[in-house]
Design a binder for these strands. Structure first.
Length: 110
DNA sequence: CGTGTGACCGGCG
DNA sequence: ACGCCGGCCACAC
């Protein structure tokens, strides 16, 4: 694994590694990073992702319910659903359909 | 150096 | 089944 200091960079790495049409959860990433109890840090890192110059597909990251919790952070709440839909992920009432099936867990996949 | 905050999660009432 | 509360860690002010 990498250095701990690059916690949030690592989050971006994982998020960027998420295959198109798949989604992951904050908890999964947190667990992968070893901070299982502190999934908030993952979400919080995503907040910082807005500042990053790299394009972080944060729309592929949802909470464990499969709900688009961070959609309000995209500028327009509709953007997140639109992006997901574009990638083949069906979103209904802010919830990802077949979320469990499309879930891409780094701890399992990697 | 101390305090606050956060796109969450899991457990308990 | 639903709602509330605490925990946990990193970063900004």
């Amino acid at each position: 694994m990498k250095a701990e200091g690059d916690f949030f960079k690592m989050v971006f790495e994982v998020v960027k590694l998420v295959p198109k049409g798949r989604i992951t959860t904050y908890g999964a990433i947190a667990n992968y990073l070893g901070t299982r109890s502190s999934a908030r840090m993952v979400g919080w890192a995503m907040n910082k992702a807005h500042s990053q110059t790299e394009d972080i597909p944060a729309h592929r990251v949802v909470n464990r319910n499969g709900m688009l919790t961070g959609k309000y952070h995209f500028g327009n709440p509709t953007m997140m659903e639109a992006l997901l839909k574009k990638e083949g992920v069906i979103v209904k009432k802010d919830i990802v359909v077949d979320f469990k099936k499309k879930l891409w867990d780094p701890t399992i996949e990697l």
